[in-house]
Design a protein around this nucleic acid. Structure first.
Lengths: 246, 246
DNA sequence: CTGGAACCTGTGATTTTCCTGAGAAACGCA
DNA sequence: TGCGTTTCTCAGGAAAATCACAGGTTCCAG
């Protein structure tokens, strides 16, 4: 089930209306805290664990709808944790966190059951988007929720990665896509450059803050070109997106 | 009966609308888990057993619509298990798992009765496809469900392995065929290279991830050559297939 | 009117990602 | 066994994406 909160954001809910439950497993405290904060902001209920043993225990009593699992844990191998988790919760989808260079060797077979993974360092938008996808497809949330974001005559499909305005297809790069997704998930709300950086760029990004300006500029060229603008600057505050009429 | 899920995937269902039931029998835990995951993702209901005795017991009360049976079990010979299964469930189709070098004539006789087999190491696409075929033909699922995948003017017949675009027949190798089938079973959805590897290549494949790029390249040469392309790259995300018009 | 802060955007270097030719190895079949 | 086919590795090159930098513009306060 999806509901629209008073702030205009769409939330995933379980069929009985209770919040989605997610278990986060990572040994780095900074990561679990970062993720917990971001996922709570989605309106989800979060528990975290720092090792495999704790993960299995917590899973047993918390019964999460999805698990975020680092492949590199101190006490046991990610695959071992996965096995035990599966025994407790056979149908729960898992989002794996892996180091960038470790991707190809140990991931084999993992995404086959509908699971997914992201590589460290990740962006929060990416994690949230993948989790939403997993939960949506697992059936823990109402199946009617679909993968389309719509603001005015602008649509974004999270499955096909297609974006169109007034029926016309628009090609976006990966970063542009994530930025637009973030804006569209928060329509009519001013998002500061800091917020955007924190969400759309990976957590270890060390570059200039004006990449945001740059990418806003790119988006405008593709989305607002020659049309009634939908992306607006709030000087000193940030940016927002809203339907053209109004 | 087939229904189309909100995600756009086609699911096999039993005539009464309940999910298809499959029993997986293998002594290697990693195999039963891999298969269980993948088959659950198809929307099927799965039970697994690690030996012949357990298989017969589970079959008795679970009444599966199909059985995946490893020929190499610790407690009894595959044939013995088959015999006892047949006593419980005379009409259930069986998909045998055999080692590559195992005697094939033994299997050949068995598959005459409508059963089928795949050799280890298998790809999940192959197992799923064969199971779907078995279930379809056994009549446990609605017979009207057919074996044709169609995307735009591109068609793929899962029974005859024939592929054609705009009426013109196209010859594909086995790997090309499985890759195209996977793409066509998920039209308009971006599939990552990891997903494709996990699904189309066998579970023990340890090679470079760029085989996917290579085979996409082969497919394009045969399917998109000189035509409006249907296979699209989403840089940094994966590949998708969709009808040419749109 | 003026100066400064905030924002916009053109240019181009760097990095990442993807494509594909060539050839080696494995396979299938006569 | 030998030959054609298929699968896969490797590596070079092309294309695309990302981002730093810097000069220009807009806005607002004083």
């Amino acid at each position: 089930m999806t509901t629209t909160s008073p702030q205009g954001r769409t939330e995933l809910l379980r069929p009985d209306g209770s919040p989605v439950r997610v278990l986060v497993v990572d040994d780095e405290l900074s990561i679990t805290e970062l993720l917990s904060m971001a996922l709570r902001y989605e309106g989800w209920q979060i528990r975290s664990a720092g090792d495999g043993t704790g993960a299995v225990q917590t899973a047993r009593e918390f019964r999460p709808d999805a698990v975020v699992l680092d492949m590199m844990l101190p006490d046991m191998d990610g695959l071992a944790v996965l096995g035990r988790l599966r025994r407790e919760l056979p149908d729960v989808p898992v989002l794996f966190l892996t180091a960038k260079d470790a991707v190809e060797d140990r991931i084999a077979g993992l995404t086959a059951g509908g699971d997914d993974y992201v590589t460290k360092p990740f962006s929060l938008e990416e994690v949230v988007a993948r989790l939403r996808g997993l939960i949506r497809r697992s059936g823990a949330a109402d199946r009617r929720s679909d993968s389309m974001l719509v603001v005015g005559d602008l649509t974004l499909d999270e499955d096909s990665h297609e974006v169109s305005r007034a029926g016309e297809n628009i090609h976006l790069t990966a970063t542009e896509f994530e930025l637009l997704r973030f804006l569209m998930r928060n329509p009519r709300r001013v998002l500061s450059k800091a917020q955007i950086l924190d969400r759309v760029w990976s957590y270890d990004f060390g570059g200039q803050a004006n990449v945001v300006e740059l990418y806003i500029s790119y988006l405008r060229r593709k989305i607002d070109a020659g049309r009634e603008p939908m992306i607006h600057t709030r000087r000193g505050a940030g940016y927002l997106i809203k339907p053209a009429a109004s």
